[in-house]
Structures are given as C-alpha cells and as structure tokens.
Amino acid sequence: MKTKSTRKTKAAALDRDHALYLLRSMIRIRRLEDKCAELYSAMKIRGFLHLYDGEEAVAVGVLEALTRDDAVVATYREHGHALIRGVSAGCILAEMYGKQEGCSRGRGGSMHLFDDKTHFYGGNAIVGGGLPIAVGLALADKMQNRPNVTCCFFGDGAVAEGEFHESLNLASLWKLPVLFVCENNLYAMGTALKYTQAVMDLARKAASYDIPSHAVDGMDVLAVEAAAKQAVEAVRAGEGPHFLECRTYRFRAHSMFDAELYRTKAEVEEWKKRCPIETFTQTLKSRGLLSEADLEKIERDVEGEIREAVAFAEACTWEPVEDLTRFVYSERRMS
C-alpha cells in the first residue's frame, strides 16, 4: 500500500511574493464566484452554476505546480481553475453570459469553459468524463516525447464512475504522465461519501492500480502546493501517474438549485473556520509577511479586476444566429 497519510505544511521559509501570489489567487477565485452568484440572481447567468468557495486552495496549489505547456482537465466547478490557468475573468464571465467573446464563444456556458491557448481542455459537465480524455492527452505527450504532465481534476463523485477505473488502470498500465487530482469535498452532489463509497479512503483506490497516491489537507494551500509539486515532479520524471486526494469542502450549495438538506448549518460553519483564505491570511500575518495594507491592496486590485470583467462581459456581443451551425464540423476538410 503506497497511500501516505496527510502531509503537514512545512514551516520552512516562505517567499513573501510567492505567498502573496497564492493568497491573491485564492481571493480572485472567491470574488469571481461571489460575482457569479450575484449575476445569477440578476439572471445575467443562466443554467446550472457551481461555485468553488472553500475549495480555492486546491486549484491554486495544484496549478502552481504546473508549467504553461502542461494540460489541465477540470470539472463543471471550474471557473477558478480557468482563471488561475490564465483565462481572463472577462472571458470567463462573457462565456457564462453566452457572449461570443467568451472563451468558448458562448456555446459552452458555466460548465464548459475551454481554452486551447492555456491548454485548458474543459470544463466538463459529465462526472468522470475528463479522466479518459486526460489519459489521451498524456498518451499523446508521451508518444511525442514531450515532457508535459496532464493534470486532471475530478470530484469524489467521479470515483463511482466506470470511467474513473478504466482511466486509472490504463494510465498506470501505460505509465502515462497524468496527475489525478481528486477534489474530495465529501458530497457527490447531495449524497455524502459514506453513502456512495464502500471504501471511503479514496487514495486507496488509486493505490489498487499501483498508482502512488497521497491525501492532503485541501484547505491548506501550502500543503496542496507542496504535495502537487512533489507529485508532478515524479510524474514528469517518467514514473507514471500519481494521485492526489485533496480533502476539502464547498461552502456553498452544490449548484444554485440546492436546498442543502443533506448537511447541517453547523457542519458548514465548522468547515468555514478552516476557510483556506482566512487561515492563510492569518498564517502570513503571524509570520509578518502580510500587512493590512497588503491585504487591502489585494482586495482593491481584485475588485477592480472583477469590475472590469463584468463591464467586459456586459459590453460583449451575441453571436448572430446565422453562425449557429459553425464549429460543429471543421471548415478545413483535410490535413
């Protein structure tokens, strides 16, 4: 059994600029999601909307371990991943509005952010649907001798899908450069892990495919980053796939249609005490790396970024209906 216990944050020297970057990144996600909720209520955003509040440390910590050439595959709770990967908040919001300047030309919406330039291969509304594709992306890198890693995010719900098991087996069998990142927020939609999994230690499932696996405190950005860097390094060195279970919690409902009957307010409040942004802020302050003025500046900058993004999305345009059938098939026939 290669499963290792939760890793602890090292109290080693922390570069101030890097620390502020991590904090700022988490705050950018939180404020973007806050704005999405507001825009949803204002009916600017339609459909299903899944917000990432509480889980920011996972995307920020893991993505920090990747290079620009690495590929990312995410879930339908992916606004934050796209943002940190480098898709602008404006393009993300425009996509949710359904405007043609959105990263998927408004054809995808909230769950289908896609951006070829940043190797962000979605946004995927099928639980577990990203895993086989990540296997293929990694296979292509391996076959073409490119030193890239494919990072595949999925939730604890995906572990119940057949595609999860097929993908882990094949990635391990062929020693493909995939980092599987399970964002375990304890609920598959509204069903608790204990009601969906016979084996609740999810890292053990990866270990059963002979994939080195680790569980990490997903509320601790430094712990996530350290674990992800170590795993990515091993994957890039040709060791085959690794599995990282990030134990986290979503503070908001599953989607905007969710009465949250499956958990108590007390449980949510208890987890909110471990808010990754709050706790990291306190850590940095206690180490003398963050002043109130720093924090105010971050908040002010992010507020400006989001304000500009909303203005951008508002000013974007609807794709003419005449373009409706474009991009179903390629316009270029042969290569």
């Binding site: 590929a71 291969y121 895993l131 086989p132 594709i133 990540a134 296997v135 293929g136 992306l137 990694a138 296979l139 292509a140 890198d141 076959m143 073409q144 494919t150 057949g162 595609e163 097929e166 993908s167 087996n169 094949l170 069998l173 062929w174």
Partner: peptide, 28 residues
C-alpha cells in the same frame, strides 16, 4: 507496440484516449 496499442477491455478509455490524443496533436 508504440503505434499499435492493445488496450484493456475498457471501451470508455479507448474512445476517451482517442479524444485526448487528438486534442494533443495525434491522429488516433
């Protein structure tokens, strides 16, 4: 075997690897 790949009996993974590999520049 680098270009003729026997797979497990895993149809979702077979089709999925084609999607991913195609996205990353191959022609599966």
């Amino acid at each position: 075997p680098g270009r003729v790949k026997d797979t497990p009996v895993s149809e979702a993974a077979i089709a999925g690897l084609a999607v991913g590999a195609a996205a990353a520049g191959l022609r599966p």
